[in-house]
Design a protein around this nucleic acid. Structure first.
Lengths: 141, 141
DNA sequence: GTTTATGCAAATTCTTTGCAATACT
DNA sequence: AGTATTGCAAAGAATTTGCATAAAC
């Protein structure tokens, strides 16, 4: 049994080809992906609807989390630590580079001082757009 | 000359009926609105396209800012302080209540410690979903 | 054998584009 | 008068729904 098969089972999901390939895509690319991104990575492989439902299931079961951005399309990224169906919290910063168009998770966590009083927080999003260090050095050349 | 007419002119925009009505909607509702939200508030008044272009212009000229959320549709909110074409920064927390469905700006600012090293930040989004204090007290009853 | 996932067709929602007519300053 | 805005028609993305077939456990 492969590591990806294991990951699906341990999160309470059936092992299917579509799920293995989508999970693989996220692991290989290590950037956030939207449904249209995945269609480009896996052309003529699965139906659009299958990919949408795979992403939906992955979010429900703590394999992926959604990223709120300004693009309109919903981007997803791998949950780094022990997320599951019931514990699924994402307080880290996401960075999107407008040159290479990559969105990545970071280890930078949201500071506690920012939490609002009286509001019951269920979902958090910390997101920045700009230019990543790689693309900055390429531009200077 | 009304206050809204003034606001448009001082931001370098022509005064038109569509812009006055859309601006009015944001001031009256005091919550974030998407293009579809505005169509519901101003039915049979303006064309969809006009509303989209009005929102686009308002963002360009520092009257509105976009909010990155999980909704699919792009939501907009009034800029509180002196935004304009060239100075247009939004580092404050936005709160979305999933009961009353309202998204509001807060005065809580993003802490500096959160800024990433080496990444040139151009646009920031801090967003939380949950239950607002009003809806929490209604649920308890 | 039962439950769950997939594919196909179709529809819905959100957003953008081009162009002629109209309104603003 | 000259420039910017609007409406209409149409197209283009992203996403969702229903239902029959197929695959997983």
């Amino acid at each position: 049994m492969t590591a990806h098969e294991n990951q699906l089972k341990s999160h309470g999901l059936r092992v299917t080809d579509a799920r293995l390939r989508v999970l693989e895509a996220f692991v290989l690319k290590s950037v956030a992906l939207s449904q249209p991104d995945i269609m480009l990575l896996l052309p003529d492989t699965f139906d659009r609807v299958t990919v949408y439902r795979t992403l939906e299931r992955f979010v429900q079961h703590g394999i992926l989390h959604e990223i709120a951005d300004f693009s309109g399309a919903i981007r997803y990224a791998l949950c780094n630590n022990g997320c599951n169906r019931h514990n699924h919290r994402h307080d880290h910063l996401h960075l999107h580079c407008r040159i290479c168009n990559a969105t990545r998770c970071t280890d930078i966590l949201l500071q506690q001082e920012v939490l609002p009083v009286g509001f019951l927080v269920e979902k958090t999003s910390l997101y920045m757009e700009g230019i990543c260090s790689d693309c900055q050095s390429k531009q200077v050349q």
